[in-house]
Design a protein around this nucleic acid. Structure first.
Lengths: 212, 212
DNA sequence: ACCTGAACACCGTTCAAGT
DNA sequence: ACCTGAACACCGTTCAAGT
């Protein structure tokens, strides 16, 4: 709302919109979204709260700006692989990697309903790759969205177990009843391997494409 | 922390832990999680804030109690269908239906990392059904978790578009470039049919089981 | 153009005091 | 056993005032 950026950084002890956003992003990604406050951010920057309002506006517009940054990052992803289907899979993995690295920013984007926009650049690429294997129209749209849901899915679920490690393993007592299948009980007591779950689901979704 | 419930409702103008939880759940599910506050809840009940602390404890323990209620609801689900795979699919759908109806309570459970516990009753049932088609051990665990991830996934993604209807459709301008595939553009401009996406992904995950 | 403090209307929580 | 008001330490945001 307020500011207009001009020229490069000046030798001044004030803050710029950039440094505010940088610091906000760092606080949020390291200490978590709920640890963030406007006053805390101002304190970290050594500035009055009201100064933030001048540079980037309210908490709301600040979060919007952070969501835009994540969007920028999503437009940089590149597809690799020998076949079109391999390249689709590589894009899905790359998206997932960004989401896992930017968990908290992703939550912000999610809460502002920016997910469709966030995924648009990759979707455009996937559309082209689907056309290469002869898939178009409503059928292609369904595959596109299924892959998107799957990427978000496994990332979101992984968040809740990543947040604190003491919950990283399932409570063993939940599965200690006398089950006949000891291998399965052991597999379920181990921490969920979300990478494996992701690959399994992705392969299930892409399998029909591999035979065209 | 404080109270011990005894006997049935007494004719008194005080509140009980039950009525507090009922009112809290209604506020949260109707007005949304962010609209909830301890003071607002007290106001709605016509009681001082501090009275809530006596009956159910802090906001934290109150949310824990609400998560327990959702867990109870999840234990009631029944499998229907002719084949074991059909019954697995029916359980997945039933779970999804509960999640969509109790969106906000689910968010609470999710943020408290109760998802594994929440899904345990259904998982037990699915384990039995997988055994019926001869799937056990680590392989069964992977399928189990993939289905769980898929259910949560499509529900979570649907939330963000359900919250306000003006975002229910994708921004048409995102796809209006000159694309050769008009059918696909039309399909992508329409609101996402999450039911279809859910069924598509579920079928992809269960397809390998149908041929055993 | 940039930064400030004071003020407002909110929070969750504790605690001593009432009946 | 149950409920209360006062108080504390937080919020986000606005606004008039400074330089």
């Amino acid at each position: 709302m307020g500011s207009q950026r001009r020229g490069a950084g000046r030798g001044h002890d004030g803050v710029t919109a950039e440094t505010i956003l940088d610091t906000a992003a760092r606080i949020i990604e390291i200490d978590g979204l709920e640890a963030f406050s406007m006053r805390g951010l101002a304190g970290r920057l050594g500035v009055a709260v009201t100064s933030i309002y001048w540079h980037v506006g309210s908490r709301d517009t600040l979060f919007d700006a952070l969501a835009d940054r994540l969007l920028d990052e999503m437009t940089q992803l590149l597809a690799v692989g020998d076949t079109p289907v391999d390249r689709i899979a590589s894009l899905a993995r790359a998206q997932r990697t960004v989401l896992l690295r930017r968990q908290q920013l992703f939550r912000i984007a999610y809460e502002r309903e920016r997910i469709p926009r966030l995924f648009l650049p990759v979707q455009r690429a996937v559309v082209g790759l689907l056309a290469e294997v002869g898939m178009r129209g409503a059928e292609a749209a369904l595959v596109l969205r299924s892959v998107e849901v799957h990427v978000v899915a496994s990332a979101v679920l992984q968040f809740s177990t990543m947040r604190d490690t003491k919950h990283d393993e399932e409570d063993p007592s939940l599965w200690t009843d006398a089950w006949p299948d000891r291998d399965l009980v052991r597999a379920l007591q181990a921490p969920t391997d979300y990478d494996a779950v992701f690959e399994h689901g992705l392969e299930a979704l892409l399998a029909p494409l591999r035979t065209r």
